[in-house]
Deep mutational scan, measured.
Amino acid sequence: MEVRTIKVFTTVDNINLHTQVVDMSMTYGQQFGPTYLDGADVTKIKPHNSHEGKTFYVLPNDDTLRVEAFEYYHTTDPSFLGRYMSALNHTKKWKYPQVNGLTSIKWADNNCYLATALLTLQQIELKFNPPALQDAYYRARAGEAANFCALILAYCNKTVGELGDVRETMSYLFQHANLDSCKRVLNVVCKTCGQQQTTLKGVEAVMYMGTLSYEQFKKGVQIPCTCGKQATKYLVQQESPFVMMSAPPAQYELKHGTFTCASEYTGNYQCGHYKHITSKETLYCIDGALLTKSSEYKGPITDVFYKENSYTTTIK
């Protein structure tokens, strides 16, 4: 009895394709271990004539594949690729409408935090270190965002349907971005203890939790000093293409032309909904596939993004 075979390709990165001759009487799992086709788990399936010449994702289970996976995804987590594939199996079914010149995501599976993050990423200057993220990001900007969303979920250790947080998501993504040249110098002034300067680099240099107003941050924000008295913390120097200011959701007025974009969060910790506000020729609110415009805006804002380049204080 002759062994019926077909020729397929296996890959971990969709760049390096490895030619395989597979036995049609055995499952993919018996031949390769966990195997995925377009995100779908085909591990328990036997090869079919229609699979001839198709590319299958496999887990990096030998040295060659491990090197290829690390170079593309910059992670050695053995569960990463499987999590990416199972997320992709959902995100490829989502709709990605162009809204006001940006790629958004039609609401499904509690994905409003991903839509808000995706919209924000198209408006701030950011370059990702893992080629996987950078490639998928370019495709997302062009309207094909399924891979990018699935990668975000995998890097953030999230599953489809789980509630997510924009600030946490951005923080994970910033860790995989090139923020080497970003720098922030802060000064804390206390009447009792004097003053202390701190220099922050990388992710810490672009994120701040405690106030939404970048102007206020430049002037000074009140913080408790270690001595128990009130101290003032203010920005001395900022070198970065953008800054992200966050605070627990509270009524906040966004003035046209003073910011790049913002995240609105309605609801409580267990259950809520994100919308995205962007400042173009007027203010726009993007909620999944829905767009509304207004000249002014007041609502429960939790993150505001500002364009920056270089700032030095005039406070002496």
Rank of each mutant, 00 (worst) to 15 (best):
V3W: 11
F9A: 14
V12W: 06
D13C: 06
T19M: 08
M24L: 15
S25K: 08
Y28A: 05
Q31Y: 13
P34H: 11
Y36W: 15
G39W: 07
D41E: 07
V42D: 05
I45E: 14
H51I: 05
H51N: 08
H51S: 06
G53F: 11
G53E: 14
T55I: 08
D62H: 07
E68M: 06
E71R: 10
H74D: 04
T75K: 11
T76D: 12
P78R: 12
S79Y: 10
G82R: 15
R83E: 05
M85W: 14
S86C: 15
L88M: 08
N89W: 08
K93Y: 12
W94C: 03
Y96D: 04
P97K: 09
N100C: 11
G101Y: 04
G101K: 06
L102D: 04
T103N: 04
S104A: 09
K106M: 15
N110G: 01
C112T: 04
Y113Q: 04
A117R: 04
L119M: 07
L119N: 02
T120D: 05
K127R: 11
K127H: 11
N129G: 09
P130C: 08
P130E: 07
A142R: 13
E144P: 01
A145L: 03
N147W: 08
F148H: 03
F148W: 03
A150Y: 00
I152G: 03
Y155S: 02
T159H: 15
G164R: 02
E168Q: 12
T169A: 06
Y172S: 12
Q175G: 10
Q175N: 14
A177Q: 03
K191C: 10
K191L: 10
T192G: 13
C193F: 00
K201I: 13
G202M: 03
E204C: 06
A205S: 07
V206W: 01
G210D: 01
T211V: 11
S213R: 04
Q216N: 10
Q216C: 09
Q216Y: 04
K219E: 08
Q222S: 13
I223H: 14
I223E: 09
C225I: 00
T226E: 14
T226H: 14
T226A: 13
K233S: 12
K233W: 08
Q238P: 01
V243C: 06
S246I: 00
P249G: 01
H256F: 11
H256P: 10
C261Y: 01
Y265E: 00
Y269H: 15
C271T: 07
H273K: 00
H276T: 04
T278G: 07
T278E: 06
S279L: 00
S279W: 04
K280N: 15
E281C: 05
L283R: 00
D287S: 03
E296S: 11
V304A: 00
V304Y: 02
K307P: 12
K307M: 10
E308V: 13
N309F: 11
Y311I: 10
K316Y: 15
